[in-house]
């Protein structure tokens, strides 16, 4: 579905991504883990088009999108939710979602966009907050809005950047359920996460990054047992 070959990006002397190869299969949930500064968010920014790579290529649904601007990737079905929630603060929750619904797919009319928003709002449990200004939401609601807004663009593949960060365990569990429901509706998910129980519960496969490189890829248990991973990541965390 998504194929990444030799993707590299440096910022001055810092190599944020180096020769990253990755393949995302349709329908899976792929977790991306790694210590702070491993290049996870850079990878997501490269995939969503906010950064352009120095080298390598990205292919989505058989089309090369390496140089495509972010909005074009969204139109093709590559959705993105941000780690630091950035709602449009002067808009209500409803209006925030309308932006994604109207512009996520070219040619969407107002009526159709409203139907999309209604669906997404029901799925994410934001209905009671529909008319609340986005600047007045709690963190959990903010995170839901971030997710809902990405869903409103009707992605085939959804990139999630630490959508659980800052949530309490019970809230994180709720979010896990939500992501499962999203996958069940036919959306492939790639997510960055720090909370290991969440990764274990959600991910079909796990990618481990360190110093901008992919150092392991596989099922959670395999990856967790990998000595290189333990050294780079799990070991350091203990």
């Amino acid at each position: 579905m998504l194929r990444v070959e030799g993707l590299s990006k440096r910022f001055g002397g810092i190599v944020a991504a180096y020769g990253v190869n990755l393949e995302v299969h349709p329908g899976e949930i792929l977790g991306v883990i790694g210590p702070n500064g491993a290049g996870k968010s850079t990878l997501l920014n490269l995939l969503s088009g906010l950064l352009r790579p120095d080298a390598g290529r990205i292919e989505f649904l058989g089309e090369e999108i390496t140089q495509a601007p972010p909005e074009v990737r969204t139109w093709k079905g590559l959705g993105r939710a941000f780690q630091i929630v950035q709602p449009f603060p002067e808009m209500s929750v409803w209006e925030n979602l309308m932006v994604g619904a109207l512009y996520g797919k070219p040619g969407t009319g107002l009526k159709q966009a409203q139907r999309v928003v209604e669906e997404v709002i029901a799925l994410t449990g934001l209905a009671p907050k529909a008319q609340t200004p986005a600047g007045e939401l709690t963190l959990l609601e903010d995170k839901r809005l971030e997710l809902a807004r990405a869903l409103a663009t009707r992605p085939k593949l959804l990139l999630l950047d630490e959508v659980m960060a800052g949530l309490r365990p019970a809230e994180a569990l709720e979010a896990v359920e939500l992501i499962r429901r999203i996958r069940a509706s036919g959306v492939t998910v790639v997510f960055i996460e720090h909370l290991m129980p969440v990764v274990q519960a959600l991910a079909d496969r796990v990618v481990v990054m360190d110093y901008g490189q992919v150092i392991a890829l596989g099922h959670y248990d395999e990856v967790a047992a990998n000595p290189r991973v333990r050294e780079a990541y799990l070991g350091r965390a203990r």
Partner: peptide, 9 residues
């Protein structure tokens, strides 16, 4: 930036 990622040209 968010607007672009949501598909706004």
């Amino acid at each position: 930036a968010v607007a672009r990622v949501l598909g706004v040209p």
